[in-house]
């Protein structure tokens, strides 16, 4: 996947641009969106506890990959939304799910040798075609994300004060 900083900056940008037209989408929800965009990155728990260790412990096949899929994002967003106060919960879920889905779309745009991304639509077993925009360790992705993020930040502050 793209590194998390680029994903977070692009999510900040898209949700901030959205906030210019959508009532109620203010900064406290934009920061929730930035958190939601990090949900698929939880798949990196694999670096701390290898999936094979879990397989050996419980005696069942196991993969972390669903966390970085639309089905997994729907469930994790539910867990995180339960941590919010009752009056915020529904909106928190909607924002977390939308941002997690956006993060999957970014990730689905990276290069695969056969032109199809991974099963990020799980539980639907489809590999969507990828536009092959980047490889995951490409510093150019961060360059683009920083420029876009800084531009949106400037316009947002300028319109807020202007």
């Amino acid at each position: 996947m793209a590194e998390l900083l680029s994903t977070v900056l692009l999510t900040y940008s898209v949700f901030t641009i959205g906030s210019w037209w959508i009532d109620g989408l203010d900064r406290r929800w934009i920061v929730v969106a930035m958190g939601g965009a990090a949900i698929p990155d939880l798949v990196k728990v694999d670096l701390l506890v290898d999936a094979r260790v879990i397989e050996q412990t419980v005696g069942l096949p196991f993969s972390y990959t669903p966390v970085a899929s639309i089905g997994g994002v729907a469930v994790v967003a539910g867990i995180v939304a339960m941590l919010f106060g009752t009056q915020w919960r529904r909106q928190a879920y909607a924002i977390l799910f939308a941002a997690g889905g956006f993060s999957l779309l970014i990730d689905g745009a990276r290069v695969y040798a056969d032109g199809y991304a991974n099963f990020y639509l799980y539980p639907v077993w489809i590999r969507p075609p990828t536009p092959e925009l980047f490889v995951s360790a490409d510093p150019a992705v961060l360059g683009v994300a920083l420029i876009v993020g800084a531009s949106v930040f400037s316009v947002d502050r300028w319109t807020a004060t202007g």
């Binding site: 879990i54 096949p61 993969s63 966390v67 089905g71 799980y122």
Partner: peptide, 13 residues
């Protein structure tokens, strides 16, 4: 549920 998805994915992938 999330754990169940992990087991399902691991079994079917």
């Amino acid at each position: 549920m999330l754990f169940g998805m992990g087991v399902h994915y691991g079994a079917v992938e």
